[in-house]
Design a protein around this nucleic acid. Structure first.
Lengths: 358, 358
DNA sequence: CACTATTATGAAAACGTTGTCAACACTTTT
DNA sequence: AAAAGTGTTGACAACGTTTTCATAATAGTG
């Protein structure tokens, strides 16, 4: 803390030129004599001079910073997205301002005034160039009026890209997650293995990700079998919830032959509960998941799941946002993204049952 | 993007006062007549006016932003720290600029010029008020000369707090992790259960976290038994590495009776490998871990491990950094933090062996 | 050789705040 | 009644850049 960064003025003085000329070499303007350019560059280098982004932002109106709003950065789904966005953003010379709204996860906070709305204020203050919303309030089926106005106001000043399901009345750009396709894929896999008695576990009830998936699940299941509402247990997205779901099904004595879990964590919790009741997957029950997390291939049993290609999602989101940064007012067509991909491992019991066809 | 944020000038005009007066109400200066204050506040509210942090930073030299440099935000250890730091920082009105250096993890990048050094430059540019380094290059046993100068230069301008082991020649403030204590604790537990043939798996070889732990492991083990270097397998911090380690030990036919794993992920990978060889934990071998990750209690077997109380670490780190922000030049005494805590579950086999004492 | 392009340079305004200072209108003190 | 204090207010400099504009120096043209 003894040192301080020099200013362009001091660089100019030490190089014996004007501020303007230094600015020119900083911005690679061609109209500077080689002699002075070299001298200036030498001085810059000697003093480890870094131009102040703050001052630059002052005039350019750009902070080269993007905000990410995520509800729970301890959840692998979000960190996967965040790390991918961060990577690509850095390559395009943008930094990431991270806001963890804690509106999901172990340490979830319930307040009457949404944390997210107050986060919007901070973001406005910070004058980021663009904003990603990865989940949280935006996923609720019943958006509050105040949240909606706050979000639309935000979006009217700074472009917002939401990774999630489209919501009526929200003006932001949505990157759709193709939620239905993934569940359909994996439920179909269970069906094609011969399972008919299939339930669904995990996911918060009034959240779009959950409701959309459950809806798609019921649709496909009802084509081949009947839906038993009792074996659809919605609580939350974590291991404890898979555990609780299994416990409930067993206690009520309605454990089905197969289950679709919201994600790998829920599946993990389910495995644990089964073990505690001396049952095992896939012998006694098949369990698959809609959302792959990093260690699926190391769990016992290895989890049959759907790889949602979140990396790819992040890429599309960033491209979209960068687009809006420059070319205001024009809407791009939906960009391509990889479709969810079924990854067959052990927990579906495909090895045991062995390819019954539909 | 149709709207734009007003400036203080426009607020002043619409309120019929000078810029200075508006600035006074923004900063709660007492010397403003009630009449004008109310008028101005009304105008501010009507227009959703947010003062520009950029302009404020320009004059105050403070951005109210802290940077976090982490090597792999897909690793629960880091997200745990990040989310805790973010939470407390927000409460103190600081925002978090996140830099993921990808110097660890699945997508690790190797370059001749350290990514971290280039991150230092971005950070300098952004003029954050303080910096956290959570891991990465700083943990290397042999720090490169260029990294060291870059880091010390950075720290001479912006205060840096490192969560990690002290390094000679680095001037930053270090928050020590008490690494030794945790391994000692858990190794002692194995010893007290009667195990003598104990190995160690996981962790990158030339990284301080690893070397410190292995050293402590050897120290305590050698008091009661002999150390077999062959059963110490250092590769990396992830599930694949636990898997690989077990595979190696089995192939060389030197699988010990118990293993200390670097962290829960390594343990998970080890469980998986055992299963593939039709062995099981803890019946055939006990496996415990030095670093707890969220789902330890849902794995099969439930993992006996050490809770390092990382939350607490984050708290200390933030307090330290905030201290340096205001009171330059003075060193605070080490703040208290929770000691690592042994959590006995199943994977140590304590239930089977049942309390042999040392 | 005068006249116009072209290139290199610096002065000064602008960005949106805060902070210092002076000025004004009142009170209060002497 | 003059002096001194107190509470409100606005003008203006400052923060570190970029950008616009004018100008000086050089080269190219008829």
């Amino acid at each position: 803390m003894t040192h301080k960064n020099l200013t362009i003025k001091e660089i100019a003085q030490r190089s014996g030129v004007s501020i303007s000329t230094v600015s020119r070499v900083l911005n690679n303007s061609p109209s500077v004599s080689n002699e002075k350019r070299e001298k200036i560059q030498a001085v810059i280098h000697e003093n480890d001079y870094q131009p102040s982004m703050v001052a630059r932002s002052m005039v350019s109106k750009r902070t080269h910073t993007l905000a990410i709003i995520a509800p729970d950065i301890n959840n692998p789904y979000f960190t996967d997205l965040i790390s991918e966005i961060e990577l690509i953003a850095n390559q395009s010379n943008y930094s990431i301002l991270l806001f963890n709204t804690m509106s999901a996860g172990n340490r979830k906070v319930e307040t009457k005034d949404s944390i997210e709305i107050s986060v919007f204020k901070s973001i406005l203050e910070k004058q980021v160039d663009g904003i990603f919303i990865l989940g949280g309030d935006i996923d609720k089926e019943d958006l509050s009026e105040s949240y909606l106005t706050a979000l639309n106001h935000l979006n009217s000043i700074i472009p917002v890209v939401v990774i999630g399901q489209y919501q009526n009345g929200v003006n932001c750009h949505f990157i759709d997650r193709n939620l239905k396709y993934g569940v359909t894929l994996i439920t179909q896999h269970l069906l094609s293995l011969g399972y008919r008695d299939i339930g669904f576990i995990g996911g918060e009830p009034k959240i779009k990700i959950t409701t959309e998936r459950v809806k798609a699940f019921k649709e496909i299941l009802s084509l081949y079998s009947s839906v038993n509402e009792e074996t659809i247990i919605l609580n939350d997205y974590y291991a404890k919830d898979g555990y609780q779901a299994i416990k409930l099904l067993i206690e009520k004595n309605i454990l089905p032959k197969a289950l679709v879990a919201m994600n790998d964590q829920v599946a993990l919790g389910a495995f644990r509960a089964l073990n505690d009741y001396h049952l095992s997957c896939p012998e006694d029950i098949a369990i698959v998941s809609c959302d792959a997390f990093p260690d699926a291939d190391f769990q016992t049993p290895r989890i049959t799941n759907v790889n949602q290609h979140n990396h790819d999602l992040a890429q599309v989101a960033l491209t979209t946002l960068l687009f809006y940064l420059d070319t205001t007012e024009i809407l791009p067509e939906n960009m391509s993204q990889h479709l969810p991909e079924l990854v067959i491992r052990e927990s579906c019991g495909s090895k045991n049952i062995g390819g019954l066809k539909l």
